[in-house]
């Protein structure tokens, strides 16, 4: 049988059939053009307009010039990068370590471990935020246990102190997404030939050396993919922040998406300005993905 990936005999597809093919593609193409590319162009045009509500007029780059003077935007930008820089590397490294451990076919209880670690993927971000909101609140389970065990004399302000609250959001994201990324790495590890490891062991390579010299280089495309994916997701972080801390205390945990949502749908909307903020997310996603791909290809 000829798989379709293989080259087909020339002239196998006549013009009429090829033309019919467009009908299969057209609905999806039109939808993506109208609901992804067109809004993106609109976003850029809207970001050049100033005013509130529907009284908009072109103001050039004035919205962008305002960004550095908007304390909430600056704080949200800082927080977003804080989440990105701390959470993504820890999560991906942990996922990779777990995947390597679980890739051992002789490991007892492998299936159970894998299922349990992957389980958090079944919750929605809202659900897991609500659960962690309970666990970490002042009258939540953790404070209760810590006080009962005499570790602390009064509740730790997990959600009302900005430093703690940011960490709690990071913990929540780690819980929700580590197993998800592990699945990608497990799939990647399965395609690595076992004999490579056998040979390395015979040559006296330690576990760490095997990890650094075989596993990581061979998984590079998947590591790159998960890095781009997680970066993209974290730059748009919204659900956890809105549910668990409402951006607070103050703007201590605020993210860009949260700021955009709030200034558009909970205050007098300044569509142009909010879209300028949103456009900066697009630029960051694109720039970071570009950098990550360049670095990922070279090393």
């Amino acid at each position: 049988m000829t798989a379709l990936g293989a080259p087909r005999p020339r002239g196998g597809l006549d013009k009429r059939t090829a033309r019919k093919g467009w009908l299969f593609i057209l609905p999806a193409v039109l939808l993506i053009l109208a609901l992804s590319f067109y809004p993106m162009i609109q976003a850029f045009l809207l970001s050049l307009q100033k005013g509130s509500g529907n009284n908009l007029s072109y103001g050039g780059l004035s919205n962008y010039q305002r960004l550095p003077r908007d304390a909430t935007y600056v704080a949200a930008l800082g927080n977003t990068f804080y989440y990105l820089i701390i959470q993504v590397p820890i999560m991906l490294l942990l996922a990779l370590i777990l995947a390597v451990m679980l890739n051992d076919s002789k490991l007892m209880g492998r299936g159970i471990y894998r299922t349990l670690i992957f389980l958090p993927c079944a919750t929605s971000l809202v659900s897991c935020s609500m659960i962690f909101l309970q666990l970490f609140s002042n009258n939540g389970l953790l404070n209760n246990l810590f006080m009962r065990w005499g570790w602390v004399s009064e509740p730790i302000p997990f959600l009302t102190n900005a430093v703690y609250a940011r960490l709690v959001i990071i913990v929540t994201m780690l819980w929700r997404w580590t197993g998800y990324n592990m699945v990608f790495y497990l799939a990647g590890l399965q395609s690595i030939d076992h004999q490579i490891y056998e040979a390395a062991r015979i040559d006296g390579a330690s576990v760490m050396q095997q990890f650094a010299k075989i596993t990581v280089p061979l998984l590079r495309p998947i590591i790159l993919f998960t890095t781009v994916l997680s970066t993209n997701g974290t730059l748009q972080l919204f659900d956890e922040v809105r549910i668990m801390t409402a951006g607070g205390p103050g703007v201590g945990t605020a993210t860009l998406s949260w700021h955009i949502y709030r200034s558009t749908f909970e205050q007098v909307p300044r569509f142009g300005y909010a879209t300028a903020m949103a456009f900066t997310i697009f630029v960051m996603v694109a720039v970071l993905a570009f950098i990550q791909m360049k670095v990922g290809e070279r090393t």
């Binding site: 999806a28 590319f37 976003a43 860009l256 998406s257 955009i260 949502y261 694109a286």
Partner: peptide, 20 residues
């Protein structure tokens, strides 16, 4: 070309989409 749309974060098009 379609693949490029993966680079468009939904958060960036939220407001134009809402208005549209």
């Amino acid at each position: 070309v379609l693949m490029l749309s993966m680079m468009i974060p939904p958060a960036a098009t939220l407001i134009p989409m809402f208005r549209m």
